[in-house]
Design a protein around this nucleic acid. Structure first.
Lengths: 239, 239
DNA sequence: TCTTGACCTTGCCCCAGGGTCAAGGTTCGA
DNA sequence: TCGAACCTTGACCCTGGGGCAAGGTCAAGA
C-alpha cells in the first residue's frame, strides 16, 4: 500500500500525470486511507507502467485506454502504426534541424544560403541597409511562395551583379531613393536603365513566372518600397 | 492586401495559428476591411515566415517573441541552444522507438524479451495462465524498479528452470493454489520444497538485493497472489 | 509538545494550437 | 439576380500535463 508519490517514482512518472490518468479514466481511482490519501497496490503499478510505455511513444491517452484491453493482434497492429508515426516524427524533427544547422545566424535564419550570400554581396558593394532590407524581405516571400523559382531567380540575379553596368545602375537607383523628384539626374538614369533592359530583355523575360501574385504582393505593399523619386523614375521609364 | 486564408497558405500555416499569434502578440493585428476581415500586407507575411521557422523548431512562442527582435549574437546563441534541444528530442524519440521495435506484441510490449521468453517457457511447461499473469506482473515491477537486477534474476530463474526437480516443484506449487488448505499433499510438498532450497541456498541467497521494497510490494499486495493452500504452505515451510 | 520539512489534497490557469459552432460576407456560375 | 460554395468572425471545449495556491498530514528532531 504505497502513496502516489512513491508510485510515481517507481514508474518514472510525475504525480500530476497519475492524477491525470485517473481523471481520464485510464487508471482506476484506488481506495483512500483515513486521511484521504490515495493508496496503491502493485496492480496499479503494473497498469501504470503499461500506460507510461504507450504514452511515452506519443500515443494519445484516449487510444491508450482502448489499447490497454485490446486483443494481442490489434495491439501488434497498433504498435506497428505507432512505430511508423514515431519514424515520421523523427524525420520531421531532423528536417527542421537540418534547416536550422544550415541557416546560421543573421539573415541566414530566414533565407537560403544563396540569398544570404547575395545580400552580403550587396553589402560589400555599398548598397544601403534600407535597400538590403527590402531585398531580403522580398526574397523571403519568394522563397515561401516558390522555392524553385526563387532559386532560379537568385542565381540569375547574382550573375547579373557580375555585370559592372548593372552594378552601377543598381547603386544609382539605390541612391536615387532619397533624391527630390525634380532632380535633373532622374531622366538620364531612366534612359540608361531603359537602354540596359533593352539590351538584356531577351534573357530576363523569357521564363514563365509561376507565382506572380506573391511577387506583386511583395513589390506593391511593402512599406518604404517606394519614394517620390522612384515613383518619378517609374513614370519616366514607362512614358 | 490579402485575407487571412491566403496568408496562411503562403506561409504554410493554419488560419488558426495566425489568429493565435495575434492573441499572443507575436504578429501585430492588421487593419480590417469594411466587412471586418483582417487584411494583410507583405510585411506581415515576412514576419509570419520568421515566426513559423522558429515555432517549427519547437521554440516556445514567448521565446519567439523575444528572438524576433534580438541582436544577431543573441540569436546565434539561441539557435545553437535550440539545435541542441532538437537533437535531444530526436534521441529521446529514437530511444522510445527502439524500445517499441524490440518489444513486439503480446507480453513483449511491457517486459523484456528475456522475460517474454521465460513466460513462453512457462506456457510450454503447462503452467496455469493465472500463474503466468502473476509472474508477468511481478517482472514488470522488477524491471521498473531495477532493470539490472531484473536481468540478473531472470537469467538465474531461466537457468533454474532447466532443473527438472525445480520444474516439478514449480508445477506442483501452481497446482496447489486451488487445493483445500487441509489437503494432505501440502506437508509433503512443503518438505520437498524446503529440501530443494536447502540444496540450492548457496546460489540464490548470496547476491544483494537492491530494491527489496518493490519486491515485497509485488509479492504482498497483488490480488490473487495467494490462496488458502499457499498460505498454509508458507506456514508449513516457515514452521 | 511544538515545529519543521516533506508529502498529500483539490482547484485553477497556462501552453500551442485543433475542432466545431453559428452567424454573416464574398464570389462565382447559372 | 439567385443560390451554392467557400470564406471569415469570435467563442467555446479539447489535449497532456506543468506550475502554483492554499490547506491538511506525517514523521522526526528539539
Amino acid at each position: 500500500m504505497i502513496t502516489i508519490g512513491r508510485l510515481a517514482d517507481y514508474a518514472g512518472v510525475t504525480v500530476k500525470a497519475i492524477r491525470h490518468y485517473h481523471k481520464r479514466g485510464l487508471l482506476p481511482e484506488p481506495g483512500r486511507d483515513s486521511s484521504g490519501y490515495r493508496r496503491y497496490t502493485a496492480e496499479d503499478a503494473v497498469d501504470l507502467v503499461k500506460i507510461r510505455t504507450l504514452a511515452q511513444a506519443g500515443v494519445p491517452l484516449a487510444r491508450v485506454k482502448d489499447l490497454l484491453d485490446a486483443d494481442p493482434d490489434a495491439l501488434t497492429a497498433a504498435i506497428e502504426e505507432i512505430d511508423r508515426d514515431l519514424r515520421d516524427r523523427i524525420a520531421q524533427l531532423q528536417h527542421v534541424r537540418d534547416q536550422l544547422v544550415q541557416l546560421r545566424g543573421g539573415d541566414g535564419l530566414f533565407v537560403s544560403p544563396e540569398v544570404a550570400g547575395y545580400l552580403d554581396d550587396l553589402r560589400r558593394l555599398g548598397v544601403s541597409e534600407r535597400q538590403i532590407h527590402l531585398e531580403r524581405d522580398g526574397w523571403i516571400l519568394m522563397q515561401t511562395a516558390s522555392p524553385e523559382d526563387a532559386a532560379l531567380w537568385i542565381a540569375e540575379k547574382r550573375e547579373l551583379m557580375t555585370d559592372p553596368d548593372f552594378r552601377a545602375l543598381y547603386l544609382e537607383h539605390d541612391a536615387a531613393y532619397d533624391w527630390p523628384p525634380s532632380d535633373p539626374r532622374l531622366p538620364a538614369l531612366a534612359d540608361r536603365t531603359r537602354d540596359w533592359f533593352a539590351r538584356h530583355r531577351s534573357r530576363s523575360e523569357t521564363r514563365p513566372v509561376r507565382n506572380p501574385d506573391i511577387a506583386r504582393l511583395a513589390v506593391q505593399t511593402q512599406p518604404g518600397a517606394s519614394s517620390p523619386a522612384w515613383d518619378r523614375l517609374t513614370r519616366l521609364m514607362e512614358g
